[in-house]
Structures are given as structure tokens and as C-alpha cells.
């Protein structure tokens, strides 16, 4: 009984520790992302938390950002699509990056690629939260600040993710950049394959539907 409780406390402590570590990674990316996998200081739970926070902020900002900046037609809005704009590219990136780097001496596993990418996304939800509150206190004339900070955050997240990839795969800077480009290309290939797949499937279904219809006409 006691051991169970201490185990849970240990897990909680580990979670808190790795969450704090996520913030450390934002300011010390090279050192931080090395320790993330090599010192096992990152946890999946925190990676999932960051992903959840990112998706949550994306949706919340649709509703609570001042309409000066984000003005959407709720009648034509599909929240699932907005969730997809984060989750879908993330999945493609993780799979694409892992598939390529395993072929080229990358030390990172699929789970670790996912974890490191999520850790790299941390600035986005934090800055978005502040921007969301800030946006309700500005006018059109002061809009430049909002857009500039938003763009800088995205660029910073991209840099963090690229650095993280280099550290977990134990790549040098040049090779890392090269494989970043390759990974982006891999994402495009994946999109192409998925499109092909879905159009094939839909045609297959259409075929079966028409076949059944034809049969029904004749019965």
C-alpha cells in the first residue's frame, strides 16, 4: 500500500521535473534536448501535455482572440479541422523524420522523435495565451505587435524542433539541416501517398455502391 503511494508520488515528481525541464529546453536547446533522451529527463506524459495545450490554445484563440485578428465564420467552422491542422502535420513530420533518419544512423526512436518535437512546440501555447489576452486590449493601429510576436514564436518553435532533431539523432549541424529538408520532402511524399490512397478507396467504395445498386435494380 505504502509502496504504491510512493510509486505514484515518484511518478508525479518525475512528471513535474520533466515539465520544468521542458522550459529549460526552450532556453538551452542544445544542452536540454541532448539530456532529453540521453539522460532520460523527458517523459511521454509531458509531451502529450504540451501537444494537448497547443491544440487547446489553437481552439481557444479562435474564440477569445479579439475579432480584429481572428475573425471566423462559426457557421462554417469545423473544430476537428483546426485540431487536424496541428495533429496531422505533426504525425506526418514524426513519421517522415523517423523513417528517413533510421536509414541514416539516426539514434532517435519513433517515440523520441515525437517527444522531442512536442517539447519543441512549447513556446507556441505559452505565447499564444499571452497574445490572446493581449489582443483584447489593442486597436488595429497596434496590430503589428501581435502579428510580429506570433511570427517570431513560430520561427522559434521551428528552430527548437530542428535543434531537437539534431540532438536526439546525434547529428552534426550540416547533416541535421540536410535531413530537415529531406524530412519536409518526406512529408510531401506522405501527403501524395495518402491522397492516392484515399482517392483509390473512395473509387473502390463508389464501385461497390454502384454494383449493389445495379443488383438491386435487377432483383
Amino acid at each position: 500500500m505504502a509502496s504504491k503511494r510512493s510509486l505514484r508520488r515518484k511518478k508525479l515528481n518525475k512528471y513535474k521535473d520533466s515539465l520544468k525541464f521542458a522550459f529549460y529546453c526552450c532556453t538551452h536547446p542544445i544542452d536540454g534536448y541532448w539530456d532529453l533522451t540521453h539522460e532520460k529527463r523527458g517523459t511521454m506524459a509531458v509531451a502529450n501535455t504540451i501537444l494537448f495545450a497547443t491544440v487547446l490554445m489553437r481552439i481557444l484563440s479562435l474564440k477569445y482572440t479579439s475579432f480584429i485578428f481572428i475573425d471566423i465564420n462559426w457557421e462554417e467552422t469545423n473544430i476537428l479541422l483546426y485540431i487536424g491542422t496541428i495533429v496531422f502535420p505533426l504525425a506526418l513530420w514524426v513519421v517522415g523524420n523517423w523513417a528517413l533518419t533510421t536509414l541514416a544512423d539516426g539514434k532517435g526512436k519513433l517515440g523520441q522523435v515525437y517527444m522531442a518535437t512536442c517539447y519543441g512546440m512549447l513556446p507556441y501555447p505559452i505565447v499564444q495565451l499571452f497574445l490572446m489576452i493581449f489582443s483584447n486590449g489593442v486597436t488595429v493601429d497596434e496590430a503589428g505587435f501581435y502579428t510580429t510576436v506570433g511570427t517570431i514564436t513560430l520561427v522559434y518553435c521551428a528552430i527548437l524542433i530542428i535543434v531537437a532533431m539534431g540532438q536526439i539523432h546525434e547529428y552534426r549541424a550540416g547533416k541535421n539541416l540536410l535531413f530537415t529538408l529531406f524530412s519536409i520532402f518526406a512529408v510531401l511524399v506522405e501527403v501524395f501517398i495518402l491522397l492516392l490512397f484515399f482517392s483509390m478507396i473512395s473509387q473502390g467504395i463508389a464501385y461497390i455502391v454502384s454494383l449493389v445498386k445495379e443488383m438491386l435494380f435487377r432483383i
Binding site: 475579432f67 480584429i68 475573425d71 486590449g137 486597436t139 488595429v140 493601429d141
Partner: peptide, 18 residues
């Protein structure tokens, strides 16, 4: 202004309100 998405005029009013 908010109801009809008029950001320019909204900003004018908001500036004074603020």
C-alpha cells in the same frame, strides 16, 4: 461594431474606451 466585424470603427471606439 463587433457584431458586424467592423474592425476599423471598433478600434476607434475601443481606443476612446480604453
Amino acid at each position: 461594431f463587433k457584431l458586424k466585424h467592423d474592425a476599423e470603427n471598433y478600434s476607434k471606439a475601443f481606443k476612446q474606451y480604453r
